[in-house]
Design a protein around this nucleic acid. Structure first.
Length: 752
RNA sequence: GCCCGGGUGGCGGAAUCGGUAGACGCAGAGGACUCAAAAUCCUCCAGCACGAGAGUGCUAUACGAGUUCGAGUCUCGUCCCGGGUACCA
């Protein structure tokens, strides 16, 4: 087993902490890393420190920059001006994944929208694969489902609605209905995305997002002023209030488009409930069968038509006060030649027919957005790009990596949207790698999640400075066979790491495309029933507990207090049970006898315990493994019995992964010259785990009425005889049993 | 709203295939040892009813149905808690 560890200490969280305590991160981070390492070693963490990584060292981020260049080369990294999430407190942009309910995931400040030039990774190109591969991964179900939702695949169609006779007039365009154009009249199309093409006969109006490029084109002269005012108002409104308030507002453009299914003109509206970021930024509104459209139609008095019905509805049945959303067992009505088709038949028939006319194409849409990796902050790996007036954006050549992060005294971010790195003038002004002329460096640093999106590839090769990862070692140890982390990384780290791994696979650097074959999300440990938080002051500081109880009791208790994947409740008093167990182990070994016979019952319990622990550990069932060892301890010491050396020795080995310090000491005391961790894991004999007499439950009519002690391989007849011999059972058996259920070695049920 | 988890004694939690519900531990009660305390060791500990007692019976895994000889476990419905996500068309 190769188990390394690393420190990912770039990023806003570290930088903010540095600002708070007033120490430069270049000084602070190594100090904190040293403290973490001290605590981990003190707690007995057994990892291979020779292969540790620290993402803030030039030896590491050289290769983070290299990863960026690989994406750039493949056309998967690009810079664009876009409306991005801006955190006014942290003074930087954030990825969509870092915005939680409209607020910054780090500081909780409400996020604003800003139009800025940013670097993006084309993770959307991989949306289909990122989704499909999930089915092949042995991951916690909750984590997979969070990724599925985030990627958000929607199957549907893009449909074109034609707006006739849009006239060029005085340098702007306008649309008028039912008027043949003389001068420069032309037709334009508005494309919408829908997952319900079957309802197109019920599309009674179109809605454009206020940011839609055709907004002004669609507006007629008499509506122009009103439309412009509405668009201006919604542009001023920030993203958060627009997303949190469910109030729908809108304005009629005056224009009409033709519904390609009915051939009828329908009005074009602009409304804030349609988002520019998703689909085409325009929708066909079907108020009969969509909640939002229904609400809007009621508010603005737009027609509502039923096109989907179940057996109880007639085609004329009104929709009522809520949209009709059912689909199973429903059929199409008011849909001309498609009437009577089921919803799914209707979908494909309508798309096929519209597609033949060139008015529709089947489309898959994803909710996932490209990954914004630019950060206008100091504490991160500089993005290795140089801007030259003659050559444009030029990547830093690989042999000039790393682009070192300059030691900048005042690294405080400001509100300008420009990274503090611009103030490192000597660093900022450089020469163009391509033409040698004066040039400027990119001042943004990359998102910390890029550091952690590939670090697992680095571990086996930390001794190499000529390559990010060596072939032989990578093949030997990767992909990661067992990965454990918090579920809060489901749509962050775990998604980005999968994406970067796929890209590196496609570029031919590695021969696998999924980084983690098995992933388990650990649970959350709460303290006396409450979430731990610094502000509440109820966090568990390992140093205090190790001082009071010892490292072994502390770590064994952490594994005992609850199921690993569900977390548990850390209670200060609970640790005493584990401490008592370890004390008993200590005394048992010290007092162990070498003479006298072994007890058959204790031997059986020993083999059962070895079996149980051996099976529980790979399943992460640490709490039950520890419980089993406690049971064995109780059996070994029952009736004030003194355990034999042969009985305690294997227990010391079983305990060693949980309480390594005590185990090592006791192992030595037992006369071993080498480490307990170099000894063979104890084995068990299946035959010796089996009890020869068992206690079998006897039920009468399914109710347990007693137990009988019988040989393990008892037959039904013998069991019946034993059961009837027991008065407390026999008294319930009146008359002749109708049926006898006998499960060998388990139970007997007498049915009357 | 939707998607994942989850709901078992005073508490944390066990029950791997549908087969004795409550392992193991905490807290609690009683006892031994001790001048005393700590530590250690022993006994009891789901609830209710009946019984002097050994014990006996009934009820219990959020709630209500169902399947089954038998359900904490499977199916359907409802409620509650935790997490994720959301004008995503």
């Amino acid at each position: 087993v190769f188990e390394p560890i690393g420190f990912d200490a770039f990023g806003i969280h570290s930088e903010n902490y540095a600002l708070k305590v007033g120490v430069h991160p270049m000084e602070l981070i190594p100090r904190n890393v040293a403290n973490f390492r001290r605590q981990l070693e003190r707690a007995g963490l057994m990892v291979d420190w020779r292969y540790a990584v620290d993402t803030t060292t030039p030896e590491y981020y050289k290769w983070t920059q290299w990863v960026f260049l690989q994406l750039l080369e493949k056309g998967l990294a690009y810079k664009k001006q876009a409306a991005v999430n801006w955190c006014p407190f942290d003074k930087t942009v954030l990825a969509n994944e870092q915005v939680i309910g409209g607020a910054c995931e780090r500081c909780g400040t409400l996020v604003e929208q800003r139009l800025l030039e940013q670097w993006f990774f084309r993770i959307t190109d991989y949306a289909g694969r990122l989704l499909a591969n999930l089915d092949t991964l042995d991951w916690s179900e909750g984590t997979k489902s969070a990724q599925r939702n985030w990627i958000g695949k929607s199957q549907g169609a893009e449909i074109a609605f034609i707006v006739q006779d849009v006239m060029e007039y005085a340098g702007s365009a306008m649309a008028t209905a039912g008027q043949s154009g003389e001068l420069t009249a032309k037709a334009i199309e508005i494309r919408v995305f829908t997952t319900r093409p079957d309802t197109i006969f019920g599309a009674t109006y179109l809605v454009l997002s206020p940011e839609h490029p055709l907004v002004s084109t669609s507006a007629t002269d008499d509506q122009r002023k009103e439309v412009a005012a509405y668009v201006a108002r919604s542009a001023k409104q920030d993203l958060v209030s627009r997303k949190t308030s469910k109030e729908k507002t809108g304005v009629f453009t005056g224009g009409y488009a033709t519904n390609p299914a009915t051939g009828q003109p329908i009005p074009i509206w602009i409304a804030d409930y349609v988002l520019m970021e998703y689909g085409t930024g325009a929708i066909m509104a079907v108020p009969g069968h969509d909640e939002r459209d229904h609400e809007f139609a009621l508010q603005y008095d737009l027609p509502i038509v039923r096109v989907i019905a179940n057996e109880t509805h007639t085609a004329e049945a009104p929709i009522g006060d809520a949209a009709f959303l059912e689909t199973t067992g429903c059929h199409l009505v008011n849909s001309a030649r498609f009437n009577g088709l089921s919803v799914s038949e209707g979908m494909s028939a309508i798309v096929t027919e519209l597609a033949a006319k060139g008015a529709a194409i089947p489309v898959v849409n994803y909710r996932l957005h490209d990954w914004c990796i630019s950060r206008q902050r100091y504490w991160g790996p500089p993005i290795p790009m140089i801007y030259c007036d003659a050559c444009g954006a030029v990547p830093v050549p690989e042999d000039q990596l790393p682009v070192l992060l300059p030691a900048l005294e005042d690294f405080r971010p400001d509100d300008s949207g420009i990274s503090p790195l611009e103030r490192a003038t000597e660093w900022y002004h450089t020469t163009c790698p391509s033409c040698g002329a004066a040039a400027r460096r990119e001042t943004d640093v990359s998102d910390t999640f890029l550091d952690s999106a590939w670090y697992f590839l680095r571990y086996p090769s930390t001794d190499r400075d000529d390559v990010p990862f060596g072939d032989a070692m990578t093949r030997k140890w990767l992909p990661v066979h067992s990965y454990i982390g918090g579920n809060e990384h489901a749509v962050l780290h775990l998604l980005y790491a999968r994406f970067v791994t796929m890209v590196l696979h496609d570029a031919g650097f590695i021969d696998f495309e999924e980084p983690f074959t098995r992933f388990r999300a650990h649970g959350m440990i709460v303290r006396e029933g409450a979430k731990m938080s610094k502000s509440k002051g109820n966090v568990v500081n390992p140093d205090d507990y190790i001082n009071e109880w010892g490292a072994d009791a502390f770590r064994t208790y952490l594994m005992f207090l609850g199921p690993y994947e569900e977390g548990g409740d850390f209670r200060d008093k609970g640790i005493s049970g584990v401490k008592r167990f370890l004390d008993r182990l200590w005394r048992s070994v010290h007092d162990a006898r070498t003479e006298g016979a072994l007890d058959a019952d204790v031997q059986r319990k020993l083999h059962q315990t070895i079996k149980k622990v051996t099976q529980d550990v790979p399943r992460l069932s640490y709490n039950t493994a520890i419980a089993a060892m406690m049971e064995y301890m109780n059996a070994m010491r029952s009736d004030e019995r003194t355990p034999h050396v042969a009985e305690v020795t294997p227990l010391v080995q079983l305990v060693s992964p949980f309480a390594p310090h005590i185990a090592e000491e006791l192992w030595s005391l037992l006369g071993n010259a080498t480490s307990v961790f170099d000894s063979r894991w104890p084995s068990y004999d299946e035959a010796l785990t089996i009890e020869d007499r068992i206690t079998m439950a006897v039920q009468v009519d399914g109710k347990t009425r007693g137990t009988i002690s019988v040989p393990r391989d008892v037959t039904q007849e013998q069991a019946m005889e034993a059961a009837m011999a027991d008065q407390s059972i026999a008294k319930f058996v009146v008359g002749v049993p109708r049926k006898i259920i006998f499960v060998k070695g388990r139970m007997l049920n007498i049915v009357l």
